[in-house]
């Protein structure tokens, strides 16, 4: 997409994004989001006023450099403690609905 074009937000686009975002939106939520997204993206298009051709992106928020540490074995969290928060667990594993179905 070119930076000057304006995005047209409609229900189809909202549904498509919802599917990518793994959200099962209701019809009412979908309808509410259409004008809100249009407004927000329209306001944000003021960034197009700026020429940023030769400006580097600012990914790091400070002068920090990458840090590494020695690859040493340290004490870890016992599995049981970790699994205490799992919605469903068995034999030290989290349980999810069956993904592979026998033919």
């Amino acid at each position: 997409m070119s930076q000057k074009e304006e995005v047209k937000v409609d229900e189809e686009l909202v549904r498509e994004i919802a599917s990518l975002a793994r959200l099962d939106l209701t019809d009412e939520e979908t309808r509410t989001f259409v004008p809100q997204f249009q407004d927000i993206l329209k306001y944000f298009s003021i960034l197009n006023e700026l020429d940023t051709e030769n400006i580097p992106p600012a990914y790091l928020s400070s002068a920090n450099k990458s840090v590494t540490r020695a690859d040493k074995v340290e004490e870890s969290v016992p599995t049981q403690e970790f699994l205490a928060n799992a919605p469903q667990a068995k034999d030290g594993y989290v349980v999810i609905p069956r993904v592979l179905i026998e033919q």
């Binding site: 997409m1 070119s2 930076q3 995005v7 686009l13 909202v14 994004i17 919802a18 990518l20 975002a21 959200l23 989001f33 997204f37 927000i40 944000f44 960034l47 197009n48 700026l50 940023t52 400006i55 580097p56 992106p57 600012a58 990914y59």
Partner: peptide, 26 residues
Amino acid sequence: IMLGTFALSAGYYDAYYLKAQKVRTL
């Protein structure tokens, strides 16, 4: 979450996320 997924999705990344990171430098 929706607006972020949109801003990062194929075809829109440069216009939104990358643009924002560049203006952040300014």
